[in-house]
Design a protein around this nucleic acid. Structure first.
Length: 491
RNA sequence: CGGGGCGUAGCGCAGUCCGGUUAGCGUACCUGGUUUGGGACCAGGGGGUCGCAGGUUCGAAUCCUGCCGCCCCGACCA
């Protein structure tokens, strides 16, 4: 069913686009590449934010806010950083409009040209390090552990709702430390926070790893990442954590006095996840009938659909449902009782499936007689009729089971779509066949990486952090390699 | 940013090639009635700057030019 929803097997990207719109998650705005996040979609994002924010606070971070505009001169202070972002920056050149002489509307007032142009932040390292310079004098000011929730703008040429938009929402953590090791530990810690969030809340298994030089964040020494597998066999980078070394401290002259009074540059990290996670969530679990949401992130966890012919019946049903609702709410389970008589029960069933509500209950006159209620789970579409007594416990268990089940399903999918290969022929045939992740030996050179990318469109997603030492030969060059790296075609 | 496709009611589309009454269909919406255990039915009704701006013409959704947006492929990029 899924009225009008294309099948994943027929056109995966069309399926994704339609699902985002039909499930009321987001829509395009008038400006190219920008999106309106609709209430239902934003509710999911808010749930993600709340869980992540708590994890950041629990690891000692505090939130702050830095401005949207970055003076142009800041961006040029760290060479790699400019190089990486220059091509996709929106620039503010004027600060005033005026009415057009010919009455055709408003025009930019040429007299209101800014002395120094402003960049709309593509990321905030530069403003933040420029600020940290004033905040940090001695080792006593360290570590500085700050996060901000913000929007950023990257002028992308090719956009997809959530996956890559010109403006997107994210959080960016920016920390400063006295020692290299402490900064590395922080980088790894936040990588683990992301992985835990992905697995426990999004029910999405991820590989943790380090990016190769060519995939590294501009200005970082090392970029760590979590990589997830989507149902079409393509990989998606779901979060990054960067060890910045002393690069930004050097560029913005951020020094601290240690216990001996000696001045040294501080060590930095930055890390972020964005509304792209929404895209990951959709593509990790959903099916041809619509969204499948993990209970922990579902805006509505349980929906109750009454089946009635008249008001008396609805009243009788409501009496039973009110009790159930109260008990569910006491357990912090969000529940919606949909009493609208403007849509049929069947219509509602389809609608809540489209929207990915994990558990649906239906109750009608027949159930009232029998003291029963129908309980259906979204992930497997299984239905069963159970006694009203004890249904609350049943639902509570079911929510946990769904959370676990969709994780296991995604994990199984990823395991069976992660293939070890030892020859280039195999490498190519796996990519063109079942797709997914490919574990292969690589000689460690950017040249080989580039050639493979040109020939197969697959990139090195990461060097897994837990990759076992294993001597082998590069699938492309035949040169020696010490471990396998993770390849895939990616979003 | 290059190649291709598309833009007509909230959504999905026909009409465009070959210009000509009042621009149509499905769905959604409103009213009334019958219905309600997997996207109900009948009757009546409202809703349109035909993406935007110019041009050609007696007359433009239709022909011409420019622009905007979306989709697919590519280049670029997280």
């Amino acid at each position: 069913m899924g009225k009008g929803l294309p099948k994943r097997s027929e056109d995966y990207s069309q399926w994704y686009n339609e699902l985002v719109k039909k499930a009321d998650l987001a829509e395009h705005s008038a400006v190219r590449g920008c999106m309106v996040i609709k209430p239902y979609g934003f509710s999911i994002w808010e749930k993600m934010q709340a869980a992540l924010d708590k994890m950041f606070k629990d690891t000692g971070h505090t939130n702050a806010y830095f401005p949207l505009f970055v003076p142009k001169s800041y961006l040029s202070k760290e060479a790699d950083h400019v190089e990486g972002f220059a091509k996709e920056c929106a620039v503010v050149t004027h600060y005033r409009l005026k009415n057009a002489e010919d009455g055709s509307g408003v025009v930019v007032d040429p007299d209101a040209k800014l002395e120094e142009e402003l960049i709309v932040r593509p990321t905030s390292e530069t403003v933040i390090w420029n600020t940290y310079k004033n905040w940090i004098q001695s080792y006593r000011d360290l570590p500085l552990l700050i996060n901000q929730w913000a929007n950023v703008v990257r002028w992308e040429m090719r956009t997809r709702l959530f996956l890559r938009t010109a403006e997107f929402l994210w959080q960016e953590g920016h920390t400063a430390h006295a020692t290299k090791q402490e900064a590395i530990d922080e980088t790894v810690q936040m990588l683990n926070v992301y992985a835990e969030f992905a697995e426990k809340h999004m029910a999405m298994p991820v590989y943790k790893g380090v990016k190769t030089e060519s995939e590294r964040f501009p200005g970082a020494i090392d970029t760590y990442c979590i990589e997830a597998l989507m149902q079409d066999g393509k990989a998606l980078q779901a979060g990054t954590s960067h060890f910045l070394g002393q690069n930004f401290a050097r560029a913005f002259d951020v020094k601290f006095a240690d216990k001996e009074g000696k001045l040294d540059l501080v060590w930095g990290t930055s890390w972020g996840v964005s509304t792209r996670l929404m895209g990951a969530l959709i593509m990790a679990h959903s099916d041809d009938d619509g969204l499948v949401l993990p209970p922990k992130l579902a805006p509505i966890q349980v929906v109750i659909v009454p089946i009635f012919k008249n008001e008396e019946q609805l009243n009788a049903i409501t009496e039973v449902v009110d009790k159930i609702q109260a008990e569910l709410k006491a357990l912090n389970i969000s529940v919606k009782f949909d009493t609208r008589d403007t849509n049929s029960p069947g219509w509602k069933f389809a609608e809540y499936e489209l929207k990915g509500v994990p558990v649906r209950m239906a109750i009608g006159p027949r159930d009232l007689e029998n003291g029963t209620i129908e309980v259906a789970r979204r992930d497997t579409k299984e239905k069963e009729v159970v006694a009203v007594d004890g249904v609350v416990k049943k639902v509570q268990d079911l929510l946990e089971d769904i959370q676990e089940n969709i994780y296991k399903k995604a994990l199984h999918y990823r395991e069976s779509n992660t293939t070890k290969v030892d020859t280039y022929e195999e490498f190519k045939s796996v990519l063109d066949g079942k797709g997914g992740f490919v574990l292969a030996h690589w000689d460690g050179t950017p040249e080989t990486e580039e050639k493979i990318k040109e020939e197969t469109k697959a990139t090195i997603r990461c060097i897994p952090v837990d990759a076992p030492e294993e001597s082998g030969k590069c699938v492309y060059s035949g040169k020696p390699s010490g471990r396998r790296v993770l390849f895939a075609r990616a979003y």
